[in-house]
Design a protein around this nucleic acid. Structure first.
Lengths: 243, 243
DNA sequence: TAGTGGTCTAGACCACGGT
DNA sequence: CCGTGGTCTAGACCACTAA
């Protein structure tokens, strides 16, 4: 059974997206909602908190709770803010992703890798290079470092599919935060060879550290994208409720 | 006076970053914290919610509340996820930002601008081109469209400083969500002229729509960055508490 | 000044983890 | 099984907005 406040949030969200409230742009007051759902005001507030965090409503003390004017847009984009984790998931429906393994090794980490993954020089890491295709066209080059202790049992068959679904479904780990550095760069001979691009083509590089839910970093990687096959989309919901 | 739960969150955060709790990696139970701060458990939970949203703790039902292992790193990065809004703010302390106005006009919007800013063809927009310098070195070219109705009263003196501080401090508006598309591109003759880069230099382009707290879009812009002066940093805290 | 959302309380029961 | 966090209640007072 799901929590009551989540159920209420879902129902309210549905109504908002349906347009059931849009005539006035304001939601009923919390006491009225509490009576309608035969619950307490605190529970209604927890439900509204979810919608606030999702960016589809906002409240003004002393005034009321209102629907944001671009709900439909945000509702669409909302799904995208998490999509970024894992290429296989993010391109679902847009085409077929395939992978070619260029290199797959295990070795000791260098200093940069130790620093980013918070490990010592004695903890072995996987070193993975993959070329990934979208509809058989080269899309990006991936260079991934993962600590063996954290993500054990990677095999070539895992690499041909999706590392992320292996982590979530097989290892039952929950993926948490990530920090990414995004930059443009000139192409090098590796890019030219594998991504089939010319010397003058720029490259979009993403360098990232990804953490598990517990805060343990499990991936340090660089991906180099062909500049002409897809942007990176970043959504910033900016709900500063906590400050 | 600030809310009690925010005060408690701040105190707990300070202790966590101090290392006061790190010996065990677990926080005291909610009842004990409630007694210590002479408050109710609900209030403690609201405080913990903040720290969860900030990504520095996580809880397991039936077990306890734990500190994430890379708190210091995340605490540092945390400030950066919002930094992205407004260049003047984001580079504070890293150098001096100056601006040169290349173009400043008012006109009717084209179709793309109408679609992104959710306005009609009859609502005038500002068209602003600025070249921005970091420590007198050209950093990026900015091409900004803002609806006049939404952000009135822009003048050249505003443009020489910061549009965002004008919006927040003069107009008293609150900036909310943003969606960004990030890509690499070849430099064009504009880039080469203003950013003083060569034909073979790549460009990092960011195309974004920025919304007010109320959900009204107020900026559609493209910025073209020199590839060798600073990455874009994106932090994804991924706290799926609401799902 | 009336009515709204924001905060807070002191209890209660449930779901889950570890024993 | 016990102890933890997760949810929920039925009130209360305060802060703010708008008339």
């Amino acid at each position: 059974m799901t929590a009551k406040y989540k159920e209420i949030a879902l129902q309210l969200k549905t109504r908002i997206l349906n347009g059931s409230y849009s005539s006035t742009n304001a939601l009923p007051e919390q006491m009225i909602l509490a009576k309608e759902f035969s619950t307490s005001r605190m529970t209604i507030q927890k439900a509204l908190d979810i919608l606030r965090k999702e960016g589809i409503i906002f409240s003004r003390q002393g005034s009321g709770t209102y629907i944001k004017q671009n709900v439909n847009l945000l509702a669409k984009l909302d799904t995208m803010s998490d999509e970024y984790v894992g290429l296989t998931k993010s391109t679902a429906g847009k085409g077929v992703i395939t992978s070619e393994i260029i290199d797959f090794d295990i070795r000791f980490p260098n200093e940069l890798e130790q620093k980013n993954l918070l490990i010592t020089a004695h903890e072995p890491v996987y070193e993975i290079r993959r070329l990934r295709f979208l509809n058989k066209q080269p899309l990006l080059l991936e260079y991934t470092i993962m600590p063996n202790s954290c993500i054990p049992g990677i095999t070539e068959s895992v690499l041909y599919h999706s590392i992320y679904s292996y982590i979530e479904e097989e290892l039952k780990l929950v993926i948490g935060a990530a920090t990414r550095h995004i930059r443009a760069d000139k192409s090098n001979h590796y890019d030219q060879k594998y991504l089939d691009c010319s010397v003058s083509d720029p490259i979009l590089e993403v360098e990232q550290v990804v953490y598990l839910d517990s805060g343990i970093p499990f991936e340090y990687s660089k991906t180099r994208h062909r500049f002409d096959r897809g942007d990176i989309i970043v959504v910033n919901l900016n709900s500063k409720k906590s400050e």
